[in-house]
Every structure is written in structure tokens, then in C-alpha cells.
């Protein structure tokens, strides 16, 4: 097989893997939008906050240490213990549940019935507030996140695919972290689908998503469902934060991964969990192949804008996205 085609396949494979990582971020947006109609601008910052909290707990960092030291003149930074990764993930999940409750209790409970744009604005405020709290709580330095995930090229795949091409083909490059991310995303989606289809809370969540008023009339607690949904989105943010943080360290630019999720949402639809996955895969493969084929002719760095162009093209023909619910308004 010609080497160029093999490398094209390699780029497509890596695009699929990157798409899974984009989809992980997009999932959090979908969960909240589906259940409450809120476009959660703070989803990226939630991923950052969750990852910061995870590293902080793992390293035994004292939260708000800088503030405490500044006020009391102390010099405390760490408790002196380290927490195993799994326990730290569990504790961080609890923190994200508490965060979800706080968001519901102090923000959205007061905004029930408001226009979607008001709710969106509230999430913008929440994003900046959370970023500031994260900074104050855990500091601005870049943190190394090591939860034991494998990284680097899979030599097994490289060696066993090298025969496909000539001497200038080195086998397919697949990052082991990306493979783990794909498996985790698959488990996460399966878990979410099972939860929403076969559990009482899941069915209540779907009922709220379909019609708030009708759900309320049959005794479903809107507050509980919103806390549940924000908790799930918080957990998804934690998973996304772990995957992205393992690549680059945990740092404040992690919140910008939300930019990668937007075209995925435009393409897959704001209300579909499978849409987030399929959208992520299409964006991932599309942007990588475009960069591979056209990038060199136009100076490269096409991925950021091409993802949005691709999403816009889909938007023109299917405004609700590939899997979104068709918007029908009767007058």
C-alpha cells in the first residue's frame, strides 16, 4: 500500500482518538443542556477545577494555603500525606457533588423560569468565579497529574503494522493514553445510557428533560434532578480533566478545552449523548485529515478553525445537529 495512504490512515486513527477526548468534554455540556436547557459555559472550568482538586488531594495540599498564610502569617502548604489515586478520585467526585449542590442552592434555584440567556450569563459568571476559587484554593502553578495511566506510543501496534508499508513507513502511531481515553469514554457513555434508561433517577432525569412542568406535576423534584445532573457533569468534567491533564499537566489553560467541545456540540446536537460521541469523532477525523491533506498548502494550524467550519456546514443543513431533537414550535 502506498505510504501516503498508510499515513493518511494513521492520521484518521489519531483523529478518532482525539475526537474521543473532545467528546468527553462535550458530554458534560450535553448532560446539563438536556436536563435543564442551560448551556453551561463553565464546563471547561469545571474540568480544570476537578483536575486541580484531584491533584491537590493526591498531593495532600492544604486548600487555600496562600490565603491562610497571608492572613495568619503561617507557612503551611501540605498536610504531609499522599492519597492514592482511586481514593482521591472518589473524594474529588464528592467535591464535585457538593459543588453541584452549591450551584443549585445558590444560583439556579433563584433563576427558575428565567430566559435561557439569563441562565447562560449565570454560567459565565460561575466560570470566572470557579476559576478564581480554583486559583485561590490550589494555586496557579502547573501540577503533574499521575494517576497511573499509560502514555506514549504503543510499540506493539507500531511493530505489528510496520510490515504494511515500505522502509519509509514506521507502523501506526497510537498513543496508549488515547486508547485508555477511548475505553473510558465507551464505559462512561454505556454507564450514562444504562443509568438514564434503567434507574428511577435516570427516568426522572429524562422526564425533566422532556417537560419540566409535567415532571413537577408527577412529583419529581426539579432541585434534586438538577443537582444530580450537575453532579454527573462534574464527574464527566473530572474524567476529561484527568485525560487532558495527563497530557499537559494540570494548569489553567485546561479550561480552554471547552473550545474544542463547541464544534462537537454544534455537529452532534446539544441534547444527544451519542451525538457528542459521533460529533467528536467526525470533528477529530475531519480536522486531522484536513491538516494532513490541505494544511501544508496553507501554512498549517488549520485545526482550530476547520473544526468550526465543519460544524457550520452541518449546522446549515441540520440546525439541530446530527442527533439533536428537531425544533418544532407550534403557534
Amino acid at each position: 500500500m502506498p505510504t501516503e495512504i498508510l499515513y493518511g490512515v494513521e492520521v484518521a486513527l489519531n483523529g478518532l482518538m482525539a475526537g474521543v477526548l473532545y467528546a468527553l468534554v462535550a458530554l458534560g455540556f450535553v448532560l446539563i443542556f438536556k436536563a435543564s436547557g442551560i448551556f453551561n459555559y463553565s464546563q471547561g472550568v469545571m474540568a480544570l477545577f476537578a483536575a486541580l482538586t484531584l491533584v491537590g488531594i493526591m498531593e495532600g495540599q492544604v486548600p487555600f494555603a496562600h490565603l491562610i498564610n497571608a492572613i495568619f502569617g503561617t507557612k503551611i502548604h501540605h498536610f504531609g500525606w499522599e492519597v492514592p489515586a482511586l481514593l482521591a478520585i472518589a473524594l474529588t467526585t464528592i467535591v464535585m457533588v457538593v459543588f453541584a449542590w452549591l450551584v443549585q442552592r445558590f444560583i439556579f434555584r433563584h433563576l427558575v423560569g428565567q430566559e435561557p440567556i439569563i441562565l447562560f450569563m449565570a454560567t459565565i459568571g460561575l466560570a470566572y468565579f470557579l476559576e478564581g476559587v480554583g486559583d485561590l484554593m490550589w494555586g496557579s502553578d502547573i501540577k503533574t497529574l499521575d494517576v497511573g495511566l499509560p502514555q506514549g506510543a504503543s510499540f506493539w501496534i507500531e511493530e505489528n503494522t510496520a510490515f504494511l508499508g515500505g522502509e519509509d513507513f514506521y507502523g501506526f502511531f497510537i498513543d496508549k493514553l488515547d486508547v485508555v481515553a477511548a475505553v473510558v469514554a465507551a464505559v462512561l457513555v454505556a454507564g450514562l445510557v444504562i443509568f438514564s434508561q434503567y434507574t428511577k433517577q435516570g427516568r426522572a432525569m429524562r422526564a425533566v428533560a422532556d417537560d419540566h412542568q409535567a415532571a413537577l406535576s408527577v412529583g419529581i423534584s426539579l432541585s434534586f434532578i438538577w443537582v444530580l445532573v450537575w453532579s454527573l457533569a462534574g464527574f464527566v468534567a473530572l474524567v476529561a480533566g484527568i485525560m487532558w491533564g495527563a497530557k499537559s499537566g494540570v494548569q489553567f489553560s485546561l479550561s480552554l478545552i471547552a473550545l474544542k467541545a463547541l464544534p462537537v456540540l454544534m455537529l452532534g446536537g446539544f441534547t444527544s449523548i451519542p451525538g457528542a460521541i459521533v460529533g467528536g469523532l467526525i470533528i477529530g477525523v475531519g480536522e486531522k485529515l484536513f491538516e494532513f491533506l490541505i494544511g501544508p498548502m496553507v501554512g498549517g494550524a488549520t485545526e482550530n478553525w476547520f473544526a468550526y467550519v465543519l460544524a457550520l456546514i452541518f449546522l446549515v443543513f441540520r440546525p439541530q445537529g446530527l442527533f439533536g431533537e428537531k425544533i418544532i414550535e407550534r403557534v
Partner: peptide, 17 residues
């Protein structure tokens, strides 16, 4: 020349090249 867009969180294409 291999350009990386801001912020540079995703560079798979450049390193595959």
C-alpha cells in the same frame, strides 16, 4: 515550519508530521 494554534493543548498533527 509547523504552526501550533493557541493555546497548543492539541498538537497531534504536528508531531505525527
Amino acid at each position: 515550519l509547523l504552526a501550533v494554534d493557541h493555546p497548543g493543548q492539541e498538537q497531534k498533527s504536528q508531531w505525527l508530521q
